[in-house]
């Protein structure tokens, strides 16, 4: 079964996809489906993005009929891609050569541009789940892209937030936050000419890091060549710092928030990347429990300034 169902209580669409249940879970390197010679990728490759065998959304979804005026359904138009960062099974983002991450950024740019050309696509969401703590089903370095046929609720909340800020202050909230954080310095983890990585004042997770371009750009394709290279550097530095924090492979959710480019208010949006790591200590998890899941209200057990200080202190030299 593959369909969208409408929830009138929250005004949102739920993706029902029985196919995702069939995804393999943490296979060994010998049976890794995305290694060269694996079931998905028999041929040699460097980087690749391909449509998921077990997708939540499809280019040609089956027909559906709403059950009634109350129980509404829609076809699950969309595209779910698996993005394989490298043919090497045994490295992750922090261990990849910077050049490879730069190529990855270029590939994300191309995927963003191409996926937005589909008429049914309203939003392109790039993300990576690293570690079994956040449900990664394969250990081979990879991320995913969901090209949604609707604007997910949290994206809509961000769009509304940008619009409200513009109405009240006449400016962009990220531009304002970046200017203030650069002045204060206390929550900054890493800074270059065009980007700043910081633990946000409003962090929801203990070691949450946001990567903000200093210039007001709405999406990855708008970044200049230099900015794309700098973004690659930030991704490497932040993930290296995560791994160095407790000397272990640090699980995280990495999410790219780009403008919903087909909307007229897309220009208000400011591109940013969020790292949401679930760990609150070496062996402790900050769970998305009832309060967080049920109300979207987060209780952060870590003071953001302290988290920033801890991450700043992790020295990284490998570039």
């Amino acid at each position: 079964m593959l369909e969208l169902r409408y929830n009138p209580l929250t005004d949102e669409w739920i993706i029902v996809s029985a196919e995702t249940q069939r995804r393999p879970v943490q296979p060994s390197q010998q049976s890794c489906p995305i290694c060269v010679g694996g079931v998905e990728l028999p041929e040699e490759y460097d980087l690749i993005s391909f449509e998921n065998r077990f997708p939540a959304l499809k280019r040609n979804p089956p027909d559906v009929l709403s059950e009634s005026d109350i129980f509404l359904k829609k076809r699950s138009f969309g595209i779910c891609e698996v993005v394989v960062y490298t043919s090497r099974h045994d490295v992750a983002l922090p261990g990849m050569p910077l050049r490879q991450i730069e190529k990855l950024v270029e590939m994300w740019v191309d995927r963003t541009v191409e996926l937005f050309t589909y008429d049914f696509v309203e939003y392109v969401f790039i993300f990576e789940n690293r570690g079994k703590e956040v449900g990664a089903s394969l250990s081979h370095p990879h991320g995913q892209i969901y090209a949604f046929p609707f604007l997910p609720r949290r994206i809509l909340a961000k769009v509304e937030g940008f619009s409200k800020w513009r109405d009240q202050k006449g400016s962009c909230p990220v531009c304002d936050v970046v200017a203030e954080e650069v002045r204060l310095k206390k929550r900054i983890v890493f800074e270059t000419d065009s980007f700043v990585s910081l633990v946000p004042f409003y962090a929801r997770f203990p070691f949450e890091v946001h990567v903000y371009p200093k210039r007001h750009v709405t999406s990855l394709p708008e970044l200049t060549t230099l900015e794309r290279a700098e973004l690659a550097k930030h991704l490497k530095i932040i993930t290296l710092k995560y791994d160095g924090l407790y000397g272990q492979e640090f699980p995280y959710m990495m999410m790219f928030f780009q403008a919903p480019m087909k909307r007229l208010d897309a220009e208000l949006f400011h591109l940013h990347i969020e790292f949401n790591p679930p760990k609150r200590d070496k062996d402790k998890i900050k769970w998305m429990a009832s309060v967080e899941t049920g109300t979207w209200a987060f209780i952060n057990p870590m003071v953001p300034e302290q988290a920033a200080e801890m991450l700043r202190r992790v020295e990284v030299s490998e570039l």
């Binding site: 990728l41 490759y45 460097d46 980087l47 690749i48 993005s49 391909f50 449509e51 065998r53 040609n60 050049r99 730069e102 190529k103 270029e106 590939m107 191309d110 995927r111 060549t225 794309r228 290279a229």
Partner: peptide
Amino acid sequence: SEISLKKQTLEREDGRYFHFYRE
């Protein structure tokens, strides 16, 4: 762009698109 990627798109038998990128 300093990095130039070459893209090759293949369609598998099951209709899925695979986009290969290399320098």
